[in-house]
């Protein structure tokens, strides 16, 4: 088995708000191995971005706070690191790209300047000329045409797809062990989306890094991931390899998500071509139901489920297939 890069144990992240404390991430566990792509899927507010930001220790504090848990990066607990050592890991060993390519770059500095900043920070042995050459090399690597010219341009002179490529180039500057991609293709056109995902896959195999792909789009997961973790209301409800999740989902929420993917083949949909949805709304984090937080929307809910007080915990139902459900679907 490949080297274990990341191990998150019992992560709890809370935010103080005017209406009291909310728990955005509630007891999340996962592992990440070199070369692997882990997809974290869920609706808005399910805690997937917060989980990712926690790994970088970028939760805005206040109001947010990592209340409990451990995050081991190659055996080292990131949550116990002094801040300046954590900064040496950010952008260097663990890098991150974001959903908003249009605003994620600083508008008043050239693209080259912003890339070189990473070298100046983490590769101090580079000379000025080396930084420049490496920067241009990165732009070339992410497929930006005429990189020498683009290097001197400002973000506003580029399209969204180009800017996301720049973000990827910047994040890969120090050949990180882990790349966290928070909805990297969501804000882009579909064709550009595919290009960006293709690029990430190619770079992953070239550089041998691990990727955490955060998305609400199961199509993206299907294209890029090896492992999938489905999140709902701050918890991971199902975790397995991609094949298992898509072919034999055992959590009703995962099943609902998969069924609500539009498909060209309408015979697949039972109700006269109507797209199945998950009924109801994601409950507010302020008043989650006691017990299973999915019970009010679940098609498989039983009296027994409703009666249970504690939250369902992830359990190994099959080898490498973990589900947190009182009444998992039988396959």
């Amino acid at each position: 088995m490949n080297e274990k890069l990341l191990e998150v144990k019992d992560l709890v992240v809370q935010f103080r708000t005017d209406r009291g404390k909310v728990t955005a991430v509630n007891g999340v566990n996962f592992e990440l191995y070199r070369g692997q792509t882990l997809g974290i899927v869920g609706e808005s507010g399910s805690g997937k971005s917060v989980t990712a930001l926690s790994v970088m220790r970028l939760i805005p504090n206040p109001p947010g706070e990592i209340a409990r848990g451990e995050i081991f990066f190659r055996g080292q607990n990131l949550l116990h690191l002094p801040l300046d050592e954590m900064r040496r890991i950010r952008g260097n060993k663990i890098a991150m790209i974001f959903q908003e390519p249009m605003t994620s770059l600083n508008p008043v500095f050239t693209v080259g300047n912003q890339i070189e900043e990473v070298f100046a920070l983490h590769q101090q042995e580079y000379s000025k000329a080396e930084r420049r050459n490496q920067g241009i090399e990165l732009l070339k690597m992410v497929g930006i045409p005429s990189p020498e010219r683009r290097y001197l341009e400002y973000p506003h002179q580029m399209s969204g797809g180009m800017r996301q490529r720049v973000m990827i180039a910047m994040s890969l500057a120090c050949r990180p062990d882990i790349l966290i991609a928070d909805e990297p293709s969501t804000a882009l056109d579909v064709t550009i989306q595919a290009q960006i995902l293709e690029l990430m896959k190619k770079l992953q195999s070239d550089l041998g890094m691990a990727i955490i792909m955060i998305t609400h789009d199961l199509g993206v997961v299907a294209e890029t991931c090896d492992q999938v973790a489905v999140m709902y209301c701050g918890q991971m409800v199902e975790k397995a390899n991609i094949k298992t999740v898509f072919s034999r989902p055992r959590h009703p929420y995962t099943k609902g998500l998969l069924e609500s993917i539009p498909s060209y083949d309408s015979t697949k949909n039972k109700e006269k071509g109507r797209l199945p949805t998950i009924e109801g709304m994601v409950p507010s984090l302020f008043d989650l139901p006691t017990g299973c937080s999915f019970q009010d929307r679940c098609n498989f809910v039983t009296e027994d489920c409703r009666g249970r007080k504690g939250m369902p915990q992830l359990e190994n139902l099959a080898l490498g297939h973990e589900v947190s459900c009182f009444n998992p679907i039988v396959v």
């Binding site: 950010r90 991150m96 600083n106 990473v118």
Partner: peptide, 14 residues
């Protein structure tokens, strides 16, 4: 609170 500030933090800048 702009996104580019978050990017700058993610790079490891102080």
């Amino acid at each position: 609170y702009m996104d580019y500030v978050r990017t700058a933090r993610a790079k490891g800048l102080n």
